[in-house]
Computed example of a mutant assay.
Amino acid sequence: MALTRPRFPILAFDEWELSLSRGSAFNQKWLMPGESLISILWKFACANVLPGDALMHLISPLVDPSMGVAPVRDNIELARLCRVLRLPEGVLRMSLLDAALAVPTHPAFRYCRLCAAHGYHSVLYQLEEEERCPVHHQSLDTRCLHCSCETPHILSASVIEAPFRCLGCRSHVSYGRLSLRSTIPAMSRQDRMALSRHWLLRSGNDMNGGSGSA
Results as ranks from 00 to 15, higher is better:
residue 41 L to V: 10
residue 47 A to C: 13
residue 80 R to H: 03
residue 80 R to E: 06
residue 53 D to V: 08
residue 38 I to A: 00
residue 76 I to S: 06
residue 35 E to H: 10
residue 64 D to Q: 05
residue 44 F to A: 01
residue 53 D to I: 05
residue 35 E to K: 10
residue 41 L to P: 10
residue 82 C to F: 00
residue 51 P to R: 03
residue 49 V to D: 08
residue 70 A to N: 05
residue 80 R to C: 08
residue 59 I to V: 15
residue 60 S to Y: 00
residue 47 A to T: 05
residue 76 I to N: 06
residue 47 A to P: 15
residue 44 F to G: 00
residue 63 V to G: 08
residue 65 P to L: 02
residue 67 M to S: 03
residue 45 A to T: 05
residue 65 P to F: 01
residue 77 E to R: 15
residue 80 R to P: 06
residue 56 M to Y: 04
residue 75 N to M: 07
residue 33 P to H: 04
residue 44 F to W: 15
residue 59 I to R: 12
residue 73 R to E: 11
residue 57 H to L: 02
residue 57 H to V: 00
residue 41 L to Y: 13
residue 83 R to C: 02
residue 75 N to V: 10
residue 74 D to W: 00
residue 70 A to T: 15
residue 57 H to A: 05
residue 44 F to R: 04
residue 50 L to G: 01
residue 57 H to E: 02
residue 49 V to K: 06
residue 59 I to S: 04
residue 38 I to Q: 06
residue 65 P to E: 04
residue 52 G to Q: 14
residue 33 P to I: 05
residue 47 A to L: 07
residue 47 A to G: 09
residue 42 W to N: 05
residue 47 A to Q: 11
residue 70 A to E: 14
residue 54 A to W: 09
residue 70 A to H: 12
residue 50 L to N: 02
residue 64 D to C: 01
residue 45 A to D: 05
residue 83 R to A: 12
residue 56 M to G: 03
residue 33 P to E: 03
residue 54 A to K: 13
residue 56 M to T: 11
residue 58 L to N: 11
residue 78 L to H: 13
residue 74 D to G: 08
residue 49 V to P: 00
residue 55 L to I: 07
residue 70 A to P: 12
residue 43 K to D: 02
residue 35 E to T: 12
residue 56 M to D: 10
residue 62 L to S: 10
residue 79 A to V: 05
residue 83 R to L: 10
residue 49 V to Q: 13
residue 53 D to P: 08
residue 76 I to C: 09
residue 45 A to K: 13
residue 62 L to Y: 03
residue 60 S to D: 03
residue 50 L to Q: 03
residue 59 I to C: 10
residue 68 G to W: 11
residue 41 L to N: 14
residue 40 I to K: 03
residue 46 C to W: 06
residue 54 A to C: 11
residue 79 A to Y: 03
residue 41 L to W: 06
residue 75 N to E: 08
residue 80 R to K: 11
residue 70 A to L: 13
residue 83 R to S: 12
residue 51 P to F: 03
residue 71 P to S: 11
residue 63 V to Q: 10
residue 52 G to L: 13
residue 53 D to M: 01
residue 42 W to I: 09
residue 40 I to F: 04
residue 65 P to T: 02
residue 64 D to M: 02
residue 63 V to S: 13
residue 70 A to Y: 14
residue 53 D to W: 15
residue 71 P to F: 01
residue 34 G to C: 12
residue 33 P to L: 02
residue 73 R to K: 15
residue 49 V to C: 04
residue 54 A to E: 08
residue 70 A to Q: 14
residue 55 L to G: 07
residue 67 M to N: 05
residue 36 S to C: 12
residue 69 V to W: 03
residue 39 S to H: 11
residue 54 A to N: 14
residue 62 L to W: 04
residue 69 V to C: 06
residue 52 G to V: 13
residue 79 A to F: 01
residue 63 V to I: 15
residue 72 V to N: 14
residue 73 R to C: 14
residue 54 A to R: 15
